[in-house]
Design a binder for these strands. Structure first.
Length: 211
DNA sequence: CACCAGGCAAGTA
DNA sequence: TACTTGCATGGT
């Protein structure tokens, strides 16, 4: 399996080219985007981020100063906006009160950062891993619905495998390499969006048809 | 119109 | 423990 997982990555990279993830300029923007994209199309997340950017509000200080209701209005296009606003405020409050600034928070070792993120309301395994990998640049593999759907449809994992099992399979069978983890997850999302939507059960002409 | 999108937590039995 | 439901906008 170890060679196969690397082969799949190479096939996807050959088909799609480098994805240049995460789509965001700063660790803060990446972290916010990771929460906003929960069960939400990225186009809607981009609208929310643009709303904040156009008012110069995409910063720790601005988020800390903003009323939760005000933040909710800015991020409205991303859906679940009341929940997400409250959870983002909680995240920012945690970082400031426990670490002072974002950089210090993100510089913790991988396991500590991931566990701390998981302890917060609104941060589950995928969001914690996305922030750990893409905002902090630390080696953890991100699993999402596309990963589960694509790899189970190709009988490379079992339908009932959970997040941790899938993540372990990738991390046990790939070199521990941040650029590799970064590219691999991005390529999986690219493949999912184009060839493996929920409503499109069969991958006839998908780049992974031989796997 | 129904279904879906780069989840997560809380409620129920 | 194992399901189910709420959260919500915008695109297809």
């Amino acid at each position: 399996m170890s060679a196969k997982l690397q082969d799949i990555h190479d096939t996807l990279l050959d088909a799609f080219g480098p994805q240049h993830w995460w789509p965001g300029d700063t660790p803060f923007e990446i972290m916010i985007g990771a929460v906003l994209t929960q069960n939400t199309a990225w186009t809607n997340v981009q609208r929310a981020i643009d709303n904040l950017k156009s008012e110069n509000l995409l910063s720790m200080d601005a988020f800390a100063a903003m009323e939760v209701g005000t933040l909710a209005e800015f991020i409205r296009p991303s859906g679940y906006y009341n929940q997400k606003a409250a959870r983002l405020k909680g995240l920012i409050h945690h970082i400031i009160s426990n670490h002072g600034d974002l950089q210090t928070f993100l510089e913790q070792d991988t396991a500590t950062l991931r566990e701390e993120l998981l302890s917060l309301k609104g941060i589950g395994p995928e969001t914690a891993d996305s922030i750990t990998l893409y905002a902090a640049g630390k080696p953890t593999f991100v699993v999402d619905t596309y990963t589960h759907r694509i790899f189970s449809r190709h009988n490379l994992i079992a339908e009932e495998d959970d997040y941790h099992e899938i993540q372990t399979m990738f991390m046990d069978n790939l070199a521990e390499d941040v650029p590799l983890y970064n590219q691999y997850h991005a390529l999986i999302v690219r493949l999912g969006k184009e060839y493996c939507k929920k409503s499109k059960p069969l991958c006839d002409d998908c780049p992974l048809k031989d796997f």
